[in-house]
Design a binder for these strands. Structure first.
Length: 300
DNA sequence: GTTGAGCGT
């Protein structure tokens, strides 16, 4: 029921209705574009990131779609969760993740300026250090606008050229009450060019229950860490994939697949149930609850 | 480089 609607096809271009009202909606754009703050020891921010935003006076009617930044990369269609809020149109905010430290509100404002539909941008920061936490929220005037952006920008290359947009509906994470667990595998040995989309497509064709695929990125370098995760809705597909896909080539290297350890702390019955099932798959069903916790924490 | 820190005022 929560089957992703995205198909991996290149989505249609953005609606062109609000082409006229350009970028003046942001409070952030009143101020002159500032260079990203210098990173102490890490790699320098990309040169002139703001120069890479689409030209304001695009000749054609349509706002330049993000494809122009992603010329050599297929537009991914990441699996998105159904928009929360049921049928209402009150949800108009997107969540954005994988942000670098210098990616502030002003930067994000420029990223979506061409849509002309951004009502507000917020980057979440640590209260003490004021360092960005790596994610933020983009509110649009309409839910439809948010949906268009989600479809067209998600997975496209960000204007700095180094990584792709990671977008989803805001609060998508908290609506997981329908006790449908994820069955996740770990995929290691990934080549450096493997993207979420490539990983997803590798599995989706063969395993329809694939819910998402994520390649883990280093926040500081914006490079892949060489491993990722694929989530299945169906446990039998997860188990099948672990044996069938191990050693299969993705890009230039064979994948190494393992059972994913849950990133969350071992709490809650649902989680332990999942762990128990996972362990049971390994023939370890006769263990205590305490043992489950210990195993999960890697202490046993 | 081999187990993601991804939901706020």
């Amino acid at each position: 029921m929560m089957q992703p609607s995205a198909t991996g096809m290149v989505p249609p271009p953005l609606d062109q209705q609000q082409q006229q009202q350009q970028q003046q909606q942001y409070q952030y754009q009143q101020q002159p574009p500032q260079q990203p703050p210098q990173q102490p020891s890490q790699q320098p921010p990309p040169p002139q990131p703001y120069m890479m935003m689409p030209p304001a006076g695009h000749p054609s009617q349509a706002p330049p779609p993000p494809q122009m930044w992603a010329a050599h990369q297929p537009l991914p269609a990441m699996p998105q969760q159904a928009a929360p809020g049921g049928g209402g149109d009150e949800v108009r905010t997107l969540w954005i993740g994988d942000l670098q430290y210098w990616m502030d509100e002003a930067y994000l404002g420029t990223c979506f300026a061409a849509t002309g539909e951004v009502a507000n941008v917020k980057v979440i920061r640590n209260k003490q250090t004021m360092q960005p936490e790596g994610y933020g929220f983009i509110e649009f005037y309409t839910r439809a606008a948010a949906e268009r952006v989600l479809q067209t920008y998600n997975g496209a290359i960000m204007p700095n050229g180094g990584q792709s947009f990671r977008l989803n509906w805001a609060s998508a994470g908290e609506k997981r009450a329908d006790d449908t667990p994820d069955y996740t595998i770990f995929v290691g040995d990934l080549a450096s060019d493997v993207t979420d989309y490539m990983l997803q497509e590798m599995f989706r064709g063969r395993y329809p229950s694939v819910r998402s695929a994520k390649v883990v990125m280093d926040r500081l370098t914006s490079r892949t860490k060489g491993y990722g995760f694929v989530k299945f809705g169906d446990e039998s597909e997860q188990i099948r994939a672990m044996s069938e896909m191990n050693g299969v080539f993705l890009s230039t290297r064979p994948m190494r697949i393992g059972l994913a350890t849950n990133k969350k702390i071992a709490t809650g019955q649902q989680y332990q149930k999942g762990c128990r099932e996972a362990l049971s798959y390994r023939g370890l069903e006769l263990i205590s609850d305490e043992m489950v916790v210990l195993l999960v924490r890697g202490l046993a």
